[in-house]
Design a protein around this nucleic acid. Sequence first.
DNA 1: ATGAAAGCGCTAACAT
DNA 2: ATGTTAGCGCTTTCAT
Lengths: 347, 347
Amino acid sequence: MPLFTLITGGDIDVRIGVRKETGMAQRPTIHDVAREAGVAVKTVSRVINGERGVSDAMRARVRAAIRTLDYRPNAAARVLRRKVSRSIGYVCVDIAEPVQARLARAIATVASDHDSALTVSLTGSDQDRERAVIESLLARQVDGLVLWPTGAGSRFLQRLADSLPVVCVDRPIEGVETDTVLCDNRRGADLAVRHLAGRGHTRIAFVGDPPELFTQRERLAGYRDGLAAVGMAADPKIIFQRVQEAGPLRRQLDHWRASPAPPTALLAASSLSATAVVRALRTADPLEVVGFDDFPLADLVHGGLTVIGQDVDGMGRAAAETLFQRLAGDGGGRLRIRVAPELINRD
Amino acid sequence: MPLFTLITGGDIDVRIGVRKETGMAQRPTIHDVAREAGVAVKTVSRVINGERGVSDAMRARVRAAIRTLDYRPNAAARVLRRKVSRSIGYVCVDIAEPVQARLARAIATVASDHDSALTVSLTGSDQDRERAVIESLLARQVDGLVLWPTGAGSRFLQRLADSLPVVCVDRPIEGVETDTVLCDNRRGADLAVRHLAGRGHTRIAFVGDPPELFTQRERLAGYRDGLAAVGMAADPKIIFQRVQEAGPLRRQLDHWRASPAPPTALLAASSLSATAVVRALRTADPLEVVGFDDFPLADLVHGGLTVIGQDVDGMGRAAAETLFQRLAGDGGGRLRIRVAPELINRD
DNA sequence: ATGAAAGCGCTAACAT
DNA sequence: ATGTTAGCGCTTTCAT
């Protein structure tokens, strides 16, 4: 594909100066270093791996040779011998999505602390793709996986979880036991409802994504918990779970407004829902909204949007640290970690 | 570090059931497949690499054996032999930052189309770290790099660019020639000013980050271009480039309001600036703002924020495709690609 | 404390 | 069309 088809209204300047030939200088190997230093390869190996049993004089000579030649051990050769790659995979749906991106940062940071590389693959919520990218990561000898699963279980994923440390985030794999790090969605929705009730609301609606999503089922359960705790009955008429389609949401809100007992408050149980609701609201609407997931400028939208914020950094760190604990040999029972969300009040 | 220190107010359920021993079953090798199929290893190699010169019968037998044993070629061994890893690196400052995250998605998608893995490393704008993570990627034999540089050049980066295909994004490395994919920042700021002038404004301020940043210098230049084009003089008194600190910005806005000729419009030349400005504005402020970088709900903030939106997907694709073109042997002159931004009007 | 040799799993080069 | 062998760069094993 010619490059310029990629450019929308932009320019390409072809600059003078031609690339220097690449790969001309063969990269030095451990043998070159050994020769340069006048020692055996094993000695060099000992030095680069920080093994003990090397005299200071030897070590110094080897270090000097390494510097002279600008030597860097070939990771592929090491992986081949050692059977571990010091690399992990992060498989998620869409890394451009803010929560998944922040999770990536947290995981990358922990991985780096453990001298491991992080390889990122995207599934786009497609199960076949999920399998394909995981297969590819396996071929590349990743030591373990942080997985934001599409959700559905399979024999493949079962075998995967039996043969490699896998930590799921955001939701578990249906029917497959793995270490899992989840937001305490139920508590989050519960908090939101109690907050709204505390502000005097007696009719609180729920707007969310389809209940096929694990997190949505949990948040709906938490919504019911909250209502029960403040002595209110859940009314199916003010629960709307098809926020995907914008038209219906608008109609639903109109319908509620016109109803005999309109809701005066609303829990939007996902960032998508919150966005859609805020957008569908009329300026004069008296509806008080609590959203799920914090976002920049939430303090300015709709006069300040109170939200349930996930501790994304905490989740990412927990997931990655759990993974490295497994890699360090922890063979204990599977963990299910719940990270508490927080109500961020913005009246 | 014990896990529970990571959990802020959350729970850990230790579930029953102990991990199955991992790695018990040695993964099958090409030899196992050859034995199973009753052929030579080279034949298996030919099949898995799709080389021609294998009879259909052989191919079928090998395929069957592969399936039976659940064989997956060991990437480390392949890399060691072939000298190419079919993996690229994406080195950026902070992948949680929206533009860098969207870029990651675009790059990951292109990489996947080229059967390559994407390894992500973060620099946090620290030059030493930048070098360290790049060294680590080199050891891992990445075939090339997409780099969001900290900006400063060095002998190390010069040598890097001479020995490995590197495509810079967002900004170039000072003093080092590489392929580079940039937003047309200048044109973006120019567009913004013309837009504001078209709406009748005759005094347009500039708020941005420090001019040490490449993009900020370009955007300031574009701001001047725009003013010149509509026949207005740039007035240093209404250019403010220290938006980092919130206090000063607020004071600056107050100062402008109180001045004899207050600006009636403002270009906020970064997403940080736009956020800070919107937050610092008073509700009654008549100031019309154009921001840089689009964001979700920009249509609802400050009555709808007009922005200059970067074509992040286009930039990511351009960068990655350029890299793979180099990997395919294109040794032509260095490219500097400008991707046009777009004014998103939200009166 | 240091070194020689074998071999990790694959593919390139060279048979047949 | 198929097979044999060497060797990629390292670490492991076993000397010395």
